[in-house]
Design a binder for these strands. Structure first.
Length: 203
DNA sequence: ATCGCGATTGTCT
DNA sequence: GACAATCGCGATT
């Protein structure tokens, strides 16, 4: 019998060039698709970003929509920093702040393809299934050990790091998930056909 | 495959 | 006091 190809790599792929904070000093609508295919690590643990969503101050689903508060203040600061918030009282979710000059925009990281430190992620998640380790914004924060302690940190300094993609993946777009306002905006981006998404993209 | 539900707490009205 | 950028589980189609 022919062996079916494995869905995960035997070894972690080689990392590309590390991204600087200035990568984020652009429109969130440019940064969000550009993040697809990059590798995000926390203390050396993480994987390839396969799904993100863009949020912008001018749109009511964004935490920054009603202006600065103690929680969202980092969104009003310089680009290239993390913004971590608690979701439904239980989960943590991580964003990357974009653009300077008060646009208060950020990219929510929604799913990773695990590549580095899979054993550590499996231990934190209490799971064996690689496909389920990082297939959602709350899941990936648990897998990478992200809490409020990792909020407002520079994205190009330890413990955080981002690495350029090797190849440009086929990127698909869709409406954002789990929100009740501005539901029609097609600001969700993902790797076409990836098995590591939080939810498939409509087709 | 899809649906409904409970968990749990910071944040804002 | 209402609600939320979620998840995992169990029931049902």
């Amino acid at each position: 019998m022919a062996q079916k190809p494995k869905s995960t790599r035997a070894t972690a792929p080689r990392l590309g060039k590390q991204l600087k904070r200035s990568f984020f000093d652009r429109s969130v609508h440019e940064v969000a698709p550009d993040l697809i295919g990059t590798t995000f690590l926390v203390n050396g643990v993480g994987g390839i970003i396969v799904e993100v969503e863009a949020y912008h101050q001018g749109e009511p689903a964004a935490h920054s929509y009603r202006g600065p508060t103690p929680r969202n203040q980092v969104m009003f600061g310089p680009p290239g920093f993390s913004y971590v918030y608690r979701s439904y009282g239980i989960h943590w979710c991580v964003n990357f702040v974009c653009e300077g000059a008060g646009t208060a925009s950020a990219v929510l990281i929604r799913a990773l393809e695990p590549t580095h430190g899979i054993a550590a992620m499996a231990r934190r998640r209490g799971l064996d299934d690689v496909r389920a380790l990082c297939s959602g914004p709350g899941k990936l924060c648990e897998a990478l050990g992200i809490t409020i302690a990792e909020s407002e940190l520079a994205l190009d300094r330890p413990p955080l790091a981002l690495y350029a993609r090797a190849e440009t993946p086929d990127i698909v777009t869709g409406v954002r998930i789990g929100i009740t306002k501005a539901v029609e905006l097609p600001w969700r981006y993902g790797v076409k056909g990836s098995k590591f998404l939080s939810k498939p993209f409509a087709r």
